[in-house]
Amino acid sequence: MALLSANSVSVFRDGRLVLDGVDMSVDRGEIVTIVGPNGSGKSTLLETLIGAIRPDRGKIRRAPRLRIGYVPQSLHIDPSMPMPVRRFLALPHPHDRLSRARALAQVGLSEAVEDQPMTGLSGGQFQRVLLARAILMEPDLLVLDEATRGLDQPGTAAFYEIVEDLRQVLNCGVLMVSHDLHVVMSASDRVICLNGHICCHGTPEIVASAPEYRALFGMGTRGTLALYRHTHDHAHDADHDCDHDHSQGDGGHHAG
């Protein structure tokens, strides 16, 4: 049974059809990424899948007692009310020191970061703390809504490497929304190309060669998108981006 599935799901927002007849699923142990241009309904689909939005047509099915760890696109913390990482990780439920230290280590951070204020973290550290908080939920499904927005390309690639490691360690499914096409294509088992409806889906290689995908992202019939697969001959630094040796092509396209 799939961890999560959508069957003929349609959603209207302000009288406009945002999602039209979407069918998709996520299984345990796989990474599924949703890509599409701005306004294509990516975040709406994600919110519908996790239950924040009720579909107008169709059904969402979730595995019984499904635990979801969620990493939002952005999170504002008031700098006038300093919140240390330790306190943030205790929301909404406290966890023991060993569990917190293990979660931080799994995202490449040292236990010492617990004493730092959330507002004093770098962009990469902040996103890793959000990820650590999500995995403290011991999720069956990890959901990432453009979790690397604002990170540079090395930071983005390092973040996705951590996600790939977590998928194996936690034996969870991963559902991501992202605009980082060049990295997503290397980090995913399946890609869903969305523009109100599902234009194409399949392995990264299949989607990258699909005419619908190329048309959406302005690549044309002669355009290329470099695909490279992560290798694990890297080491995660305790507080910084991991040291890695990737051979990247020059196909770095973005979805706006």
Results as ranks from 00 to 15, higher is better:
residue 136 L to C: 02
residue 42 K to W: 08
residue 54 R to T: 13
residue 202 G to Y: 08
residue 27 D to Y: 08
residue 87 R to G: 03
residue 11 V to Q: 02
residue 121 L to I: 07
residue 6 A to G: 13
residue 197 H to I: 00
residue 216 L to V: 02
residue 99 S to G: 06
residue 242 C to A: 13
residue 189 D to K: 03
residue 48 T to W: 03
residue 207 V to C: 07
residue 81 M to V: 15
residue 140 D to C: 11
residue 177 V to F: 02
residue 214 R to F: 04
residue 104 L to P: 10
residue 227 L to W: 03
residue 243 D to L: 08
residue 61 R to K: 11
residue 64 P to D: 15
residue 250 D to R: 10
residue 55 P to D: 09
residue 39 G to F: 01
residue 4 L to G: 06
residue 233 D to R: 13
residue 101 A to G: 07
residue 237 D to K: 09
residue 174 V to H: 04
residue 179 H to Q: 11
residue 17 L to E: 13
residue 110 S to L: 00
residue 42 K to E: 07
residue 188 S to M: 02
residue 59 K to M: 06
residue 30 E to L: 07
residue 170 L to C: 01
residue 17 L to A: 01
residue 191 V to Y: 06
residue 96 D to T: 04
residue 13 R to A: 13
residue 117 P to K: 01
residue 111 E to I: 05
residue 106 Q to G: 03
residue 154 P to I: 00
residue 129 V to W: 04
residue 122 S to M: 11
residue 227 L to C: 02
residue 94 P to A: 12
residue 120 G to E: 13
residue 212 E to G: 04
residue 83 M to T: 15
residue 95 H to T: 02
residue 53 I to S: 00
residue 238 A to H: 12
residue 87 R to N: 11
residue 225 L to H: 09
residue 171 N to A: 15
residue 79 P to H: 08
residue 175 L to N: 03
residue 181 L to W: 00
residue 188 S to Y: 02
residue 121 L to F: 10
residue 254 H to D: 09
